[in-house]
Every structure is written in structure tokens, then in C-alpha cells.
């Protein structure tokens, strides 16, 4: 039994609005799963349903083979949640708030462990400070410390790196990779595609409450392995001549550039474009080839989904 979390036919509606419709998803033990999607897609709602913050309208969720509603004690004690917002009881001290989180999960206070967690998030010097004395980025780290304070097996990170500086983002990525090594299953949402590309084993894309696609990151990159070649012309071209008419070739920037998209290493067309240009004595100043990033793939999928 490899699936740690299995969501089946999950729907959630707020009044007449469907935030999630018929989502089915399996999360494997020990993987990092990245959930991508535009604002309002339903990422936070999906996480809230799994963690028990809201109750689904239909469908069910099983974690470690326990149902999240009828067996909530078994499922919730496995989960640590870092929410998207920064909610705090601002007058509590950093250290106490972590012990509070630990206690809520029924665990005895553990000074050594909590200090270790605070240290790994470089918050140890601030442990006696009241929370309102922390900066925004520190608050976000504190949320992560709180989520880790009961030694969870599953960690949900809802946009963990929003508002966090670049150096710290790298630190967080390292922390996440280290947690994975310790066997923690991680589900994260993010708007930084770079982050998913760096961290995730699998990627899920959600749009308007529907799960559009779930794939291994490597496969996804492979499948959409495309290159865009952009040829900058010295002189404007009014329209593409007949010889160049192809679905992969287009004029961009009002005729100043030719864009050519090639899939899976195919490059016959590039040759014919160049041949054509030299035959017609059209000068070009630059040829630029870029690999498609996950970001392009994402935008493409979202666009397709909307049509």
C-alpha cells in the first residue's frame, strides 16, 4: 500500500459556487507533491478539506487508510499544516506557541526537539520574543516550526515561500528536502513554478476546482519538451510567406521576429526557415533558442483548459 493519502471524488461547494468538483488524487508515501493553479483555483480548499478545517460536500478522503471524518484522530495526528495566511495569537512567545502546538496533538513537551526545530529555522535567538515582534518572514518560519512541532509524517505547505527573501527561500528548499529525506511526505502549493520544478517529484495542476493533470515532474517536462526559437529580423516582415506557413511558425512583435516552436528535437522547419531567409536575402540579427520551462507548460495547460 503505497498511497498515503487518497482523495476520491471530492467536491466542495460554498453556496452555489463549486470550489472543488470531483477531485480524485493519490499522494504517495514519502514524495513531494506540488499543487499549482491560478488564484481561486481551489488549492487552499483542497488542503482545508484534507486537514479537517472544512468538511467536504461530497466524496471522501483516506489517510493511511483511515477516513478523515470518522477517524479524524488517526488522520490528523499525522498532519502538520502551514496555512497561507499568517494567523497568530500575537502576545504569546515563540517558544510557548510551539509547545502549545505540540500539546494540542497530545504530545508531551519536548524542550530539546522544539529548540532543534527553532534552530533549523534560525529562530532560536527569538524564542522568548512575543510573536508581534517578529518580521513577516520570521512569522512564516514560525508557522513552519509550529507545524513541525508535533513531528508530523505529512506536511502541508500552503505557499510557504510567499514574502520570504531569496536567501531564505533557498534555506527553506533545503529544509524541505531534508524533511523528505527523513521520510516526511510533503504537499506544497506555490505560485513560483521554479519552486515546483526544483522540489517536486510530482506535479498536480488545478484550475477552477478541477484537477487538470497529475504527472511525474520529469515526465511532464519530457512530454512538453519543446524549444522555442526566435529569429530577430533586421527588417520588418509584413506577413509570413506561403513557404513558411506552418502551425509551429508565427510572426511576433508586429513582424520584427519569427517564432518557431519545435517539439522533441525535430528541427527540419528551422532549417527551411533559414534556407528561405537566405534565399530571399532577408537579414537577421539574432537567433535565440530557449527550453520550455514548467511555467510555459503550466500556462499552456491552463489556457487549453479554459477553451
Amino acid at each position: 500500500m503505497n498511497n498515503l493519502i487518497s482523495v476520491s471524488n471530492l467536491s466542495k461547494s460554498f453556496g452555489s459556487e463549486n470550489a472543488l468538483s470531483n477531485v480524485s488524487l493519490d499522494i504517495k508515501r514519502g514524495e513531494i507533491f506540488a499543487l499549482l493553479g491560478p488564484n481561486g483555483a481551489g488549492k487552499t480548499t483542497l488542503i482545508s478539506c484534507i486537514c479537517g478545517l472544512t468538511t467536504q460536500t461530497a466524496g471522501n478522503i483516506r489517510i493511511n487508510n483511515y477516513d478523515t471524518i470518522s477517524n479524524f484522530r488517526e488522520t490528523r495526528k499525522l498532519i502538520g499544516l502551514v496555512p497561507q495566511e499568517l494567523p497568530f495569537d500575537s502576545f504569546e512567545s515563540v517558544y510557548n506557541t510551539c509547545q502549545f502546538s505540540r500539546g494540542l496533538f497530545g504530545m508531551t513537551p519536548n524542550d530539546v526537539y522544539i529548540k532543534e526545530v527553532l534552530k533549523s529555522l534560525s529562530l532560536l535567538e527569538k524564542k522568548d520574543l512575543q510573536i508581534f515582534g517578529l518580521s513577516g518572514g520570521m512569522k512564516r518560519r514560525l508557522l513552519i516550526a509550529k507545524a513541525l512541532s508535533h513531528e508530523p509524517k505529512i506536511l502541508f505547505l500552503d505557499e510557504p515561500t510567499a514574502g520570504v527573501d531569496v536567501a531564505l527561500r533557498k534555506d527553506l528548499w533545503e529544509l524541505i528536502s531534508n524533511l523528505k529525506k527523513k521520510g516526511v511526505t510533503i504537499i506544497l502549493t506555490t505560485h513560483y513554478i521554479e519552486e515546483a520544478e526544483q522540489l517536486a517529484d510530482r506535479v498536480g495542476i488545478i484550475n477552477s476546482g478541477k484537477l487538470v493533470l497529475v504527472k511525474d515532474k520529469a515526465d511532464l517536462m519530457q512530454e512538453f519538451n519543446k524549444k522555442s526559437t526566435i529569429i530577430t529580423l533586421r527588417k520588418k516582415m509584413q506577413r509570413l510567406s506561403k513557404e513558411l506557413k506552418d502551425s509551429n511558425i508565427s510572426l511576433i512583435e508586429s513582424g520584427n521576429k519569427i517564432k518557431y516552436i519545435s517539439a522533441n528535437g525535430e528541427s527540419n522547419n528551422l532549417q527551411s526557415i533559414l534556407n528561405y531567409l537566405s534565399k530571399e536575402k532577408i537579414d537577421y540579427s539574432e537567433i535565440n533558442t530557449v527550453n520550455n520551462s514548467l511555467e510555459d507548460i503550466f500556462l499552456e495547460l491552463i489556457e487549453k483548459n479554459e477553451h
Partner: peptide
């Protein structure tokens, strides 16, 4: 806590 949102912790705990 409901107002500030920090109630999430109690809600997500067993």
C-alpha cells in the same frame, strides 16, 4: 482566535 484565524490550529489538531 476565530477572528485572527489562529483557530486553524485547534481545528486541524486531533
Amino acid at each position: 482566535p476565530k477572528f485572527t484565524g489562529s483557530i486553524f490550529e485547534v481545528l486541524s489538531a486531533p
